[in-house]
Design a protein around this nucleic acid. Structure first.
Length: 592
DNA sequence: ATAGGGTTAG
């Protein structure tokens, strides 16, 4: 529509119509600014219809701020403004990243002006609370929802579940969910997604099964959350089942769903399948590229990650900060120190991305792992942002590994002073004393930990067999097959010792005798799970296990021998990465 | 006019 500023509109209603139809065709911000000028010229700045349309047309924060400025003005014609207008402004704020919480201010102004909220108001304000994690505020809206009688509205309740999930109150979310009068696929997705986001992946999968029992058909969004739970668990069989389910139920494969599949296959150990899926994608988004780069990083295929990164640039896709975390961690896992340094520099110079603390963390990790402890320390000293405890912990772990024990001790002591309730600081110091053979000091640490009621996170290993997930915890004696498993561990020990395995008893940081140390090593959950798999699966079947911590040196060495003696491929996912054991060697080339 | 999803260092 052509717009002529010289045209004089005398009739107010006609002017209003003109503005509305102009806004209807508005496509660009520039266009919007011109229309805004015209709105002012026609004296329609506080016209409710125009204001509503103006707000809903633009996602620009300035435009929204302008609308709320009019609403908040001391001489505002409050009697003209209805719930619809307020809802529009609240929604606009709730959708922005920067000013989400302002939605709540608009809500308050609305209450102040005695404009009644309706059932559409609450999803917006609850979403704003979810976005900024404000539980108390969310709870007060929960109260208002009940007060105004919207507690049976499925849309309001779905957002309420989402809000509680996002505010760290998963139990409250579950109570609201359980008490809903009925559930649609959105309700289930909100709850399943809530579990998946905070890592309660088993609950997410269980709830998905309940959803099937309830015969609610999941959509592609539900499936993204379920796949995310599979990724977290490392449950390949389950993930494959989900993939089949998607095909069978003809659930539309959105880009996000394809990305979730890629992520699942990479994190469940079949990175080549992830790569094939990735290649078959028509439009690849930044997330597709990042997922496959992170996948390569986890499998120690640093050079392939780097070449994917180059291909991504050639494709004209600009990397973001997450891509760089994947790329830098790929360099770190593969010992590509020079490449990592170069990519880190290119971040600012070529792509104008300001490195965050995570990127500095990757670099410290890169230098530390490669044994460049001094360079790591220099790097930390020169960081433009305050190093966080994670960075210091990375550094001290490297100190222990590369014999810089005094440096490690002093940093860790500082850490304990700063974060006296963080158990991993004590574990680090205790490990350093163990390596120094300062048993008395080490015992003191353990006593202090005991007094404060802290203890080491127990190691656990998960294995999927016949559609069931088994979890082994270090030293667990309660398993049904306890006796058989330990006989198997003894047998494994005898066989691999004959092949040259020497127990790495120096890894055991306890002041006990040699035999007890070997015994302690044999109770590691990883060995329990491998013994269980050898007992329960036919010869030659590959073994896949998932650990909650990083693989220890002794288990790593033992698993190499086991893969050779028992002719099994063993795929171990630890906290950071994958280890592919085959014929006595590991894909990480003993660098992890 | 209303609700729900993915990628992140140690």
């Amino acid at each position: 529509m052509h717009f002529s500023p010289s045209k004089i509109v005398v009739n107010k209603r006609a002017a209003e119509q003109q503005c509305l139809s102009l806004l209807q065709t508005c496509t660009t911000l520039l266009n919007l600014n011109q229309i805004h000028a015209q709105i002012l010229k026609l004296g329609l700045h506080d016209n409710p219809l125009v204001l509503t349309k103006f707000t809903s047309t633009s996602s620009d924060l300035n435009a929204i701020d302008y609308a709320s400025f009019i609403l908040f003005a001391p001489d505002a014609k409050t009697h003209l403004y209805d719930t619809f207008l307020y809802n529009t402004v609240i929604r606009a704020y709730a959708q922005t990243n920067q000013s989400r919480i302002t939605a709540v201010d608009v809500y308050k102004t609305m209450a102040w002006n005695d404009v009644m909220p309706n059932k559409f108001t609450y999803p917006f304000v609850l979403k704003a609370c979810a976005g900024v994690g404000r539980l108390r505020l969310g709870e007060s809206f929960h109260g208002s929802v009940v007060k105004f009688g919207f507690e049976n509205d499925i849309h309001v309740l779905n957002t309420m579940v989402h809000m509680y999930c996002c505010c760290g109150a998963i139990e409250n979310a579950r109570v609201v969910f359980d008490e809903m009068p009925k559930w649609d696929s959105v309700s289930w997705s909100a709850m399943i997604g809530g579990y998946a986001r905070i890592g309660m992946s088993t609950s997410a999968v269980e709830l998905f099964r309940d959803m099937q029992i309830a015969r609610v058909k999941p959509d592609e969004i539900t499936m993204v959350s379920v796949l995310s739970a599979c990724s977290d668990l490392g449950a390949l069989e389950l993930g494959k089942w989900v993939e089949n389910y998607i095909e069978r139920e003809k659930i539309p494969k959105s880009m996000e769903l394809c990305n979730a599949l890629i992520d699942m296959f990479a994190k469940c150990g079949d990175v080549d399948k992830a790569l094939r899926l990735f290649r078959s994608l028509d439009g690849k988004t930044i997330v597709s590229w990042t997922s496959v780069i992170v996948g390569m990083a986890m499998h120690g295929r640093g050079l392939e990650a780097a070449s994917l990164f180059e291909k991504m640039k050639d494709d004209g896709v600009a990397p973001d900060d997450v891509t760089f975390i994947g790329l830098l961690s790929a360099c770190s896992h593969s010992g590509l120190v020079d490449e990592g340094r170069r990519y880190f520099d290119s971040m600012t110079q070529e792509f104008h991305i300001t490195p965050k603390i995570e990127h500095y963390g990757c670099m410290v990790d890169l230098f530390s792992r490669a044994g460049h402890v001094k360079e790591a320390l220099e790097f930390v000293k020169k960081m433009p942002i305050e190093p966080n405890p994670i960075i210091w912990r990375t550094l001290t772990a490297a100190c222990r590994l590369h014999g810089e024990l005094n440096l490690g001790e002093s940093i860790t002591k500082q850490l304990i002073e700063n974060e006296p309730l963080h158990e991993s600081n004590y574990v680090l110091l205790s490990n350093i004393y163990g390596k120094m053979s300062h048993w008395e000091k080490k015992n003191t640490i353990r006593e202090v930990m005991g007094e404060k009621g802290m203890r080491k996170i127990p190691g656990s290993t998960m294995i999927e067999l016949d559609n069931k997930i088994y979890e082994f915890v270090a030293g667990d004696r309660t398993h049904d097959l306890y006796k058989e498993i330990h006989e198997m561990i003894d047998e494994m020990g005898r066989k691999i010792k004959m092949a040259g395995y020497v127990p790495t008893t120096s890894e055991v940081l306890l002041d006990i005798g040699q035999e007890d140390k070997e015994d302690a090593l044999n109770r590691h959950s990883e060995k329990l799970a491998i013994a269980f798999a050898l007992l329960k699966t036919p010869p030659g079947t590959p073994i896949r296990i998932v650990k909650n911590l990083r693989v220890c040196g002794d288990c790593h060495s033992a698993t190499k021998f086991i893969s050779k003696i028992y002719s099994r491929e063993i795929l171990v996912r630890d906290r950071n990465r994958f280890h592919h054991f085959k014929d006595g060697v590991c894909s990480c080339k003993d660098f992890w």
